[in-house]
């Protein structure tokens, strides 16, 4: 009898837990729902209907407008050119900062030298410097290099700012790899880069996934560097979104704003959906067995 009562109580608690979790899920998904449903409505419907009602008539006009017809200031090309600005900025910035981080992490964990801990400490400190602090000095540096207002300039800023994080990720991952591997490879005659490429890189898939997702999200979502260090032709998608939403002549086109916002957020969403499980796995990946 006691047993059944206990299991009944357990069941009840379980359902309570699931209900609470379900409510949280709904609460979190509500904004996304509102955005998607609003982006599929016509302006007329938005004006008459309520915020959370489903669209009576689905229309993709707002999406088309957001993608290639909405206006940022005086130009009306939509999000498209800025989306591709972001793409050609993000890809090299993520790859370069991740690779540098991998080599840094490998060096700082397996080839320690006098002062390597200090260097690591400084890199770590770099992670905690607020963006605002480096705006002016960085602007001066970019100006001196002739990269002000260009996409390569933005790439450079993101690479520099990202190295602290990528180094931290890789260093912490490689610390758990037995140093005896390096010793064995040294006796086998391999050098610094040979050991890195033939032994450490093949081990690094989990940490690469984590670092790439992290860097991709950071750089894609960045607004401050984008707005500070770009000019009219080189603005990333986040800046364009801001401009579209703030450029209002007359009626506010909520459906276009929503569609534009989803377009801007889509790549990071896709990356999470595709690689999210590797992200969690990579973050918790332990030492290498073998």
């Amino acid at each position: 009898m006691v047993e059944t009562r206990g299991s009944f109580k357990n069941k009840l608690l379980r359902w309570l837990l699931l209900t609470i979790l379900g409510l949280f899920v709904l609460y979190y998904l509500l904004p996304l729902f509102v955005m998607i449903s609003t982006s599929l409505k016509s302006l007329a419907e938005i004006r008459t209907g309520s915020l959370i009602s489903l669209p009576r008539e689905i229309t993709l006009d707002a999406w088309a407008l957001a993608w290639s017809g909405s206006c940022t200031g005086t130009e009306c090309f939509g999000m498209k050119p800025y989306f591709f600005n972001s793409v050609i900025m993000v890809i090299p910035a993520v790859l370069i900062s991740t690779l540098i981080g991998a080599v840094n992490g490998y060096t700082l964990s397996k080839w320690k030298f006098a002062g390597s801990e200090v260097i690591f400490g400084l890199l770590l400190f770099g992670c905690f410097i607020p963006f605002q602090v480096i705006l002016l000095p960085m602007a001066i540096v970019l100006g001196k290099l002739g990269l002000a207002g260009t996409i390569p300039g933005l790439i450079m800023v993101h690479v520099i700012y990202g190295i602290g994080f990528t180094t931290l990720f890789f260093r912490n991952y490689y610390v758990s790899v037995p140093t005896e591997l390096v010793k064995a490879a040294k006796i086998d005659g391999a050098g610094f880069f040979q050991i890195f490429f033939s032994i450490f890189l093949p081990l690094s898939t989990p940490v690469f996934v984590v670092t790439i997702i992290w860097q991709f999200t950071q750089i894609w979502n960045d607004f401050l560097f984008g707005v500070s260090f770009s000019s009219a032709g080189s603005q990333p998608v986040t800046v364009a979104l801001n401009n579209i939403v703030n450029t209002s002549t007359g009626v506010k086109a909520y459906n276009v704003d929503m569609a534009a916002a989803i377009i801007a957020a889509l790549p990071t969403l896709v990356v999470y959906v595709l690689a999210g499980k590797y992200f969690v796995r990579g973050l918790t990946a332990g030492s290498v067995k073998g």
Binding site: E180, A184, A185, I187, G290
Partner: peptide
């Protein structure tokens, strides 16, 4: 010389 390590240090991949 050749060396055998405590953790064997076999290249895992």
């Amino acid at each position: 010389i050749a060396m055998v390590f405590q953790s064997y240090a076999l290249y895992p991949t």
